[in-house]
């Protein structure tokens, strides 16, 4: 068995003295693990940091084997991340969420979203909104997509202000007003055509609360899991960044 693909590094676990078991999110082969011989060498260790992109060639005798990777560096982002707590926490949260995917299940759209997000995690102006959008893509890829295009009650595409916690469909401000205590706020940066740059701390909080609700209901609770700590750390850092974007 043999293939080559692009991949985003999610993590690497030591294996023996000089090798690592590398976890990649690949475009065509999903979340995929493999052994990297010499993965702890001075040459490869900087390449195999979470958040970096690589070109991977995987080989194994049988498809169900762990197999081994030959890695060539792609975009190296981790050195940029090291100075930015938001980016470091973001990489951890991104990897934690991608680990919800079954291994070797291809999700090209999610790979694209994850790569775009990884490329901007150190940009405090856009990272929080991008992360919320990534979580929406994750929910959609796992079959629990939200419909934020028009109001579930009136069919209007403007004046959207809430999301139904049950159906995951948007609700306009007018239609939702009587039920607003039971609805989830829809932050403006998630509306079609809206900019995700420098959202307010309140909007960031609403965005993460929205995705957390649906991830909790559809992804975490059915598996007996809690929301990952890495995400909580990222959300706290994102709220701090949104409150003081130039600090």
């Amino acid at each position: 068995m043999h293939w080559s693909d692009e991949g985003l590094v999610l993590g690497a676990r030591r294996h023996g003295e000089s090798s690592v078991i590398l976890e990649l999110m690949t475009r065509e082969h999903g979340r995929h693990l493999g052994l990297v011989h010499g993965g702890r060498s001075k040459r490869l260790q900087p390449v195999l940091q979470p958040g970096n992109s690589v070109h991977a060639t995987w080989r194994a005798r049988l498809d169900e084997h762990l197999g081994s990777y030959v890695i060539e560096p792609g975009a190296t982002r981790s050195a940029r991340f090291i100075d930015v707590p938001l980016a470091l926490y973001g990489v951890g949260a991104l990897a934690a969420l991608l680990r919800l995917l079954p291994e070797r299940d291809p999700h090209p759209a999610l790979y694209e979203a994850a790569t775009v997000l990884a490329g901007h995690l150190d940009d405090v102006h856009v990272a929080p909104a991008l992360f919320v959008r990534f979580e929406l893509v994750l929910l959609a890829e796992l079959g629990f997509g939200l419909d934020l295009s028009r109001c579930a009650a009136t069919g209007r595409a403007d004046d959207l202000a809430y999301v139904s916690p049950k159906s995951g469909r948007a609700v306009s401000a007018e239609a939702g007003a009587p039920y607003r205590q039971r609805l989830l706020p829809l932050p403006r940066f998630l509306l079609a055509g809206a900019s995700g740059r420098d959202p307010t701390a309140e909007a960031v909080k609403e965005g993460f609360a929205l995705t957390e609700h649906f991830m909790r209901v559809h992804l975490f609770e059915p598996r007996g899991l809690d929301v990952p700590e890495e995400r909580a750390r990222f959300v706290a850092a994102a709220l701090r960044a949104a409150a003081a974007p130039d600090v």
Partner: peptide
Amino acid sequence: NATVDGQTTAHYITE
């Protein structure tokens, strides 16, 4: 260590 895990821990301790 100047790794993502090492520096994540460093920032966590800083907080």
